[in-house]
Nucleic acid binder design. Structure first.
Length: 288
DNA sequence: CTATCCTAGTGCGTGCGTTT
DNA sequence: AAACGCACGCACTAGGATAG
């Protein structure tokens, strides 16, 4: 198979694997790019009998290496870490064409963070990409029984998983628009009523811009916080509703640049979680 | 005071028994 | 026969104790 054809065939798959591993659009693209460079430079391609497995192996192992070298940095990450958001109408985003939107949800990616690098790789390859254990074994360089055990433990670790993310529908988008309007109007009662009592607000500024360092708990605190923040935004800020990581969301633009990407989790007709990314490094890929 | 040795705790891989 | 859960045992780590 030609490298170019392999690129068209496997790039979406490899990107979605790398993105879920890393939570970073730019790093995922770099690693996928590198993998194809290696494939192109391989002296004897006929020796590579399974191009898909070969590419998966390179990408997985590069991701594991990247995570290990980033582990130290992550320890000193300022505030809450959130994945780089994927905004749905970004036509460069190939992962959207793949099913399983819940596996790119912010909640899912945050849960993956709790796993070790290898656990994450095994879990994704098995749960999301339905590889069998023999293939996974050769990718991560462990025995297949071991991979089964790693998967078993990883799944157990994901067990205390909060309520799963419901897929977007028109209803939750309309709900979100109503909520945003209530915030803009400064309607404290309505904002409060639309939030679950035990809602949580996560914010990632990466220590570079103003952001809440710790998650904000309870409808009460979140409502107050949002109404406080909204008065500080400049008058020329504009708002657009988008799908962010498969969930209803919105972007806030100031002077033609995206400054905030917010996504929401709506459970039982109320907002349960809000994720706000304002770290400029994590919005770069959207502003190019 | 320091060095090394011991032990309790934890994490991880293997293999066996069970299920489908 | 393949997939799965579980328990066992090995290896590594940290914290404490004892000897030098």
């Amino acid at each position: 198979m030609e490298t170019a054809q392999a690129y068209r065939t496997y790039k979406p798959l490899l990107f979605s694997l790398a993105y879920r591993m890393l939570g970073s659009v730019m790093d995922a693209e770099d690693i996928v790019h590198e993998a194809f460079l290696l494939l192109g430079a391989a002296s004897d391609k006929t020796k590579i009998n399974n191009i898909k497995a070969y590419l998966c192996k390179i990408v997985t192992n590069r991701c594991i290496d990247k995570l290990r070298s980033a582990a130290k940095q992550r320890e000193v990450y300022i505030g809450t870490w959130l994945p780089e958001p994927i905004v749905e109408d970004d036509i460069n985003d190939p992962s959207i064409s793949l099913e399983k939107k819940e596996t790119i949800s912010t909640a899912f990616l945050l849960l993956l963070q709790q796993l070790t690098e290898v656990e994450r790789a095994v879990f994704l390859l098995r749960e999301v990409f339905q590889y069998d254990y023999d293939d996974i074994a050769s990718i991560v360089g462990r025995s297949s029984t071991n991979c089964r055990q790693i998967f078993h433990r990883a799944k157990k670790g994901m067990m205390h998983r909060p309520d799963s993310v419901k897929p977007n529908d028109d209803h939750s988008n309309i709900y979100l628009e109503k909520f945003a309007q209530a915030v803009l109007d400064g309607n404290m009662d309505l904002v409060h009523a639309m939030l679950k009592k035990d809602a949580v607000f996560y914010s990632d500024g990466g220590g570079k811009v103003m952001a809440a360092l710790r998650p904000i708990f309870s409808a009460d605190h979140i409502a107050r916080f949002l109404l406080g923040v909204i008065t500080k935004l400049p008058a020329n800020a504009t708002y657009q509703f988008k799908n962010v990581n498969g969930s209803p969301g919105m972007i806030v633009m100031i002077d033609g640049r995206i400054d905030y990407v917010v996504s929401f989790e709506v459970n039982d007709g109320k907002i349960a979680k809000i994720y706000m990314v304002s770290n400029p490094d994590k919005l770069n890929h959207l502003n190019q």
